[in-house]
Design a protein around this nucleic acid. Structure first.
Lengths: 200, 200
DNA sequence: TCAATTGTTTGTCGATCGACAAATAATAGA
DNA sequence: TCTATTATTTGTCGATCGACAAACAATTGA
């Protein structure tokens, strides 16, 4: 273990790559874009990250481990299922409309339309969205087990519904719908769950 | 007005282009992809449509004038506002999950992530999504005027909510969520409006 | 001091991108 | 038939894509 020390901050470069991919997507961000964003030559990027695709996957992992991980946090940290879903949606709106970050969800918008040769990353992000849907559904199921939701609550339908709401809010935020409006529509989205919880 | 007659069916070629763009998006569909899909040389495509971008815009217009125009139809043809929104969502699910067509909404998924030079088409599709949101909101407002919704119904919040639901269902359909599940989540999505209509 | 190892610089690679020029072919009207 | 007009064929253009090779620089451990 020797060798010349790296002259740039790999974590900082990765974060810049994340922001670039978040803003313009995987194929929408070219290597020359990355060179400009990271401030280093392309050969250094390849030496540090392997390839554009590997860099992208690391960037998405960084997103998921940071701000993008709000959903699992909300679902696991709130004891009440209604509060959990409410917080998940509110955190989504807060993140997707932050002024200092690209709008919308990186997992939703970074690889929706891409060429055939990059179907791999497309499928990978798809799997992450599906996993999030399942997390929501399982949290709802726990809500039934905890007696917070009626035993006849259709947790699968509710899970798909709130997953769709998350994805839809991402699109809306990317389109520039302001935070206050998204929060207002969030209140609408909560009514089915409140009914299932007998709190309406 | 004379000249050699065109040897291919322009409408049919345009439809093939629409399907290609629908499936892979604007930048995800290369000129060579279009050459393969339309079955004609690239120079013929340029002669008939001007450029790739003009072809795309015509393709989206064809989509909006056809299957993609379901929303305005549902909103204008149904006298009851609840029935109108219900039908709009049901038609969306039906279209977005058709076996013989690309899944999801073309306007939502054809240009979410693209390079800087094509921000024009991105903005154009964004405007169409915003217009659809407004159509939904105005239909809800008419529902209040007609007395079908309570005078205190928050039509702006409901409009944003159902627009987000449309966008979210598009993402879900594209991810392979089956039709029956989307229809079940649609039933969940209808409860806020039914409450506003006093039918729950 | 000197290998071994790793990072950086510089330049460029083949493939593909969207787009079009020039030549040829087929029609309508004069 | 001849001219004007439009379509098709063929080939290729410059730009950009992602990716890397080779030479050089800086560090560690022997």
């Amino acid at each position: 273990m020797a060798g010349r020390p790296r002259e740039f901050d790999r974590d900082q470069a990765l974060r810049q790559a994340m922001l670039a991919f978040w803003r313009r997507g995987y194929e929408g961000t070219s290597m020359s874009d990355l060179v400009a964003a990271l401030g280093i030559a392309s050969a250094r990027i390849y030496a540090a990250f392997g390839s554009k695709e590997e860099l992208f996957r690391e960037a998405v992992a960084l997103y998921a481990a940071g701000d993008g991980g709000f959903a699992d946090l909300a679902l696991s940290q709130e004891d009440d299922v209604v509060a959990a879903i409410q917080r998940m949606l509110a955190d989504a709106v807060a993140l997707y409309t932050r002024d200092d970050l690209p709008h919308g969800c990186m997992v939703v918008s970074a690889a929706t339309n891409c060429s055939e040769q990059n179907d791999g990353v497309l499928e990978w992000l798809r799997a992450q969205r599906q996993a999030r849907t399942q997390s929501v559904t399982e949290r709802l199921r726990r809500g039934v087990a905890d007696g917070q939701l009626g035993p006849d609550a259709d947790v699968d339908a509710l899970g798909d519904f709130y997953a769709a709401q998350l994805h839809g809010v991402s699109v809306q935020a990317r389109d520039g719908v302001p935070r206050e409006r998204l929060l207002a529509s969030l209140a609408v989205a909560m009514t089915p769950l409140r009914i299932a919880a007998g709190k309406a």
